[in-house]
Design a protein around this nucleic acid. Sequence first.
DNA 1: TAAAGCATGTAAGAGGTTACATGATTGG
DNA 2: CCAATCATGTAACCTCTTACATGCTTTA
Lengths: 170, 170
Amino acid sequence: MLDFAILGLLREQPRHGYELKRALGDLGFWQVSFGSLYPALRRLEKQGFIEAAKGEGRRKAYRVTEPGRIRFGEMLLESGDDSDRDFQLRLAFLGYVAPQSRLGVLEDRRTALQDRLHGARRSFRGARSGARNPDRYRMALMERRVRSTEADIAWLDELIAGERSAAAGA
Amino acid sequence: MLDFAILGLLREQPRHGYELKRALGDLGFWQVSFGSLYPALRRLEKQGFIEAAKGEGRRKAYRVTEPGRIRFGEMLLESGDDSDRDFQLRLAFLGYVAPQSRLGVLEDRRTALQDRLHGARRSFRGARSGARNPDRYRMALMERRVRSTEADIAWLDELIAGERSAAAGA
DNA sequence: TAAAGCATGTAAGAGGTTACATGATTGG
DNA sequence: CCAATCATGTAACCTCTTACATGCTTTA
């Protein structure tokens, strides 16, 4: 997943390690550490997916090679691990996915969120009427889960609507 | 963190491994695997924090020992790793925190979320007016982050209000 | 009677973090 | 000139997952 993120970010423009860390952090959902980032860069370089073009001073600006671009394209199509972070990362690179496939990615996510919502509602209702004593704080936790999943679906629906109108316009 | 969760859940009632996994999953934010859970149970048993009371069939129901109860109390006071999951877990056990300390826990979280919101808003505004081309999908990602953080703060405020009125009532 | 779920456990390894080490550059 | 930030890198370790192995019990 880190490799995927690195290749995607370097595809846009060459960047050195420190800058990559910031760019990744700026996406908002992943604060990667140097101890993880630098070894990953070396690994990707050894595999021939990126190469170092010497930058200013001690900076080592990396750029993607052609094999790296191909690898990134493959990773874009592989099904991820279904986590929130994975989806967010994929969304950050959805612009590289073929336009006619984008809607499918968003709709798959919507289905997963619907499932989550059903589960969350079930626990919430179950806790209110069940044998277990519904602790005040755990009830709040369950309610939050329901609400934030609903909000996520609503947000996704806006994205999907935007995607449809973009597809219609093209 | 897993140890903390296990001790907290076993404090309420004895449970065997399989049941613990479900109870943890039911909290909604952590689907722990058996490969992680069973070794953790053995470790906690070896440390004397939990003990196995033989259950029905091949089930091994564990319960917390007195040292385990003390350890849990310590962990409750230790400052966590500031992650969402850590807060949610602490909230699930907030009932075990002394009533006069609960508000502090919630307010610390509120401060952290406020910081996050500022950061999220900054990136959002920055992306709209900055030199970087604001990719449609990344903008959506940033907007989501702002919105969901706002929603989390609103939810927390309800909890805080409830806590205050509970404190006033007592 | 076969499938699905219940139940416990181990081994290998992925994927990450923290702490450490080093040193240049920039701003107050 | 001192602190903060920039910048790269290594080593030790930790946490958790996946895959495997085993076998019972319930239900369609």
